[in-house]
């Protein structure tokens, strides 16, 4: 499989990235090279194989549903680009 520059721009929109026009050609080329590297997987017959999500094939450990962390809102918001009165500030979403 391969993608066009336009298709890659659509993927970029999904990832909230914008491709610089001067780089989009070379990026599409590099992207397609990576696709050709991974395309050999398409040919494998893996119908009966169970997907592996955990590298030791274990289940995620669960914990009690208890509060273990205290509220650290001030510390976390102190490093925000823009926070006021306990809220993160962004451009208006609803006019």
């Amino acid at each position: 499989m391969s993608v066009t520059t336009e298709q890659l721009a659509d993927v970029a929109t999904l990832a909230r990235l914008k491709l610089a026009p001067e780089h989009s050609q070379s990026l599409t080329h590099a992207f397609n090279e990576i696709l050709s590297l991974v395309d050999q997987l398409q040919a494998l017959e893996l119908e009966s194989v169970k997907p592996m999500a955990h590298p030791r094939d274990e289940n995620q450990r669960l914990r009690q549903d208890l509060v273990t962390e205290s509220n650290a809102r001030e510390a976390f918001q102190a490093i925000a680009p823009d926070a006021q009165e306990g809220l993160y500030v962004v451009p208006p979403v609803i006019e």
Binding site: L44, V49, P51, M52, D57
Partner: peptide, 15 residues
Amino acid sequence: DAYYGQAQKARRLIA
């Protein structure tokens, strides 16, 4: 399915 699903299955073969 073609990419991520297939890769997760092939990962099991490697393991």
